[in-house]
Simulated scan of single mutants.
Amino acid sequence: MEPMANESPAISEGALREAAQLKRLSRPARKAVDQETADALVRRLCSLLDAEDFFGRYAALPPGEKIAQQFLASAKDQSESEFNCAVSPKVRQQVPLLFQAIAGVIEERSGTMIQSTAEINGEGFGRGLLYSGRVILVLKSLRAGFPFPFTSEEKVIRYGVECVTEGLAFLAKYKEVTALHGLLSLEG
């Protein structure tokens, strides 16, 4: 017999605990979210939500509650999205609104006109695209709606800030290339 077959279960449990501890230690620590960018994203998202609130029902709410009531998906919405690969109406609302808010923040920070396009089909496949002229700054593929639906404000902010950072970094990287003729005159 092999040596492992003769060992006691207590030893194997200890090995499992050590492996779990090593796995926890090896996880990369999450970076802190840039608070200024997070505040700008929340402000933009709230202004977009206010534009859709025709009767002003949520106008008096603070930003966190406004996002929770009008934007975040409930557990029911999340389970509806996971059932049968169908996307809930809440997810179909979240995708374009979030990408519009991200585009607004990048536009504020860079002074360059940024546009957003977001689409998601009934099965949850689609893309979110942020671009300026012919330069694509952020392209996110959606598979089965992932990472949507967002159920917590923290996750929305983290995702949005990561997209803003990615877009600004890409814009800065190619600023030299586009400086001579502008973003709209790139060939190709």
Rank of each mutant, 00 (worst) to 15 (best):
E2I: 06
M4R: 10
M4D: 03
A5L: 12
A5F: 10
N6Y: 02
E7G: 02
S8Y: 04
S8A: 02
A15F: 02
L16H: 07
R17W: 11
A19Q: 14
Q21Y: 09
L22N: 15
K23A: 11
R27K: 10
V33R: 02
Q35C: 03
Q35F: 07
T37G: 09
D39T: 13
D39M: 10
D39A: 12
A40D: 09
V42P: 00
R44K: 12
L45I: 10
L45Y: 05
A51M: 13
F55K: 11
Y58M: 09
A59T: 14
A60I: 02
A60K: 02
K66H: 06
K66M: 03
Q70A: 06
F71H: 01
A73Y: 09
S74M: 09
D77Y: 13
Q78H: 12
Q78V: 14
Q78P: 07
E80D: 15
S81R: 12
S88I: 13
S88F: 13
Q93M: 14
P96D: 13
F99Q: 01
Q100D: 07
A101K: 04
I102R: 04
E107M: 10
S110H: 04
S110Y: 03
T112W: 06
M113Y: 06
A118V: 05
I120G: 14
G122M: 13
R127G: 07
R127W: 01
G133R: 00
V135T: 09
L139V: 08
L139G: 11
K140H: 15
G145M: 06
P147M: 08
P149S: 09
T151F: 09
T151Q: 13
E154A: 15
E154R: 11
K155R: 14
E162Q: 06
T165L: 05
G167H: 03
L168Q: 02
A169K: 10
A169I: 07
A169L: 10
A172N: 15
E176N: 15
A179H: 10
G182P: 05
L183Y: 02
L183H: 12
L186K: 00
L186E: 01
G188W: 07
